[in-house]
Amino acid sequence: MSSLWSLIRRDLLLAYRRRGEVGNALIFFGLVVLLFPIGIGASETLLAQIAPGLIWIAALLATLMSLDSLFKEDYQDGTLEQWTLSPHSLVAFVWARLISHWLITALPLVAVAPVLALTLNLPADAIGVLLLSLLLGTPVLMFVGAIGVALTTGLQKSSLLLPLLVLPFYIPVLIFGASAVEVSASGWSAAGQLYILAGLFVLGLTLAPFAVASALKVSVSQ
């Protein structure tokens, strides 16, 4: 447990020392949200109607983009090999890396989502549920996405492979995340959707690290 914490601390420290890269996912998130009113038209009622799904899709894509570099550096400089051969559990490494990655990239996304939601005319009553659904959903996106990253991390030409592998598995999170915001925007309770998201959260956080660890072992072996 203490080693898990020291790992998270190390990652956070590293991220702090190269903070220039950290903001990129955030900017991407904002840009995708900007594209929709431009592409679809800035009618306020229309935007308010599609805002839940739109913010969720933008957050999903930003999370996916931020994942690309998750293990790349550790793979290239040989740290991953050292981990694999060490007596430490690779699952713990994956856990630590994902938690720190979530803190660094997804938490800021969640924080700015309300601002973007307001620009899209989402009713203010739904903001709380939007925050909660993103807090529950983005870790799942990260943990499930990490499986795809781990499988493709040793490949030279993998840029479009990651979304192809990962996006189908994002569909349940998208469905329940967007729906939670949507029903609360129409003034109903989103408890059901949030419970299911919480279930996916527990399932993803317990099972995915094992798949990630075994995928990393495969990637290291090539």
Binding site: L14, R17, R18, Q76, D77, G78, T79, E81, Q82, L85
Partner: peptide
């Protein structure tokens, strides 16, 4: 019983 060192250096530049 094993120490392995690949041809890359498993080092982090910012540390």
């Amino acid at each position: 019983k094993l120490s392995w060192l690949g041809h890359q250096n498993p080092l982090k530049d910012e540390q």
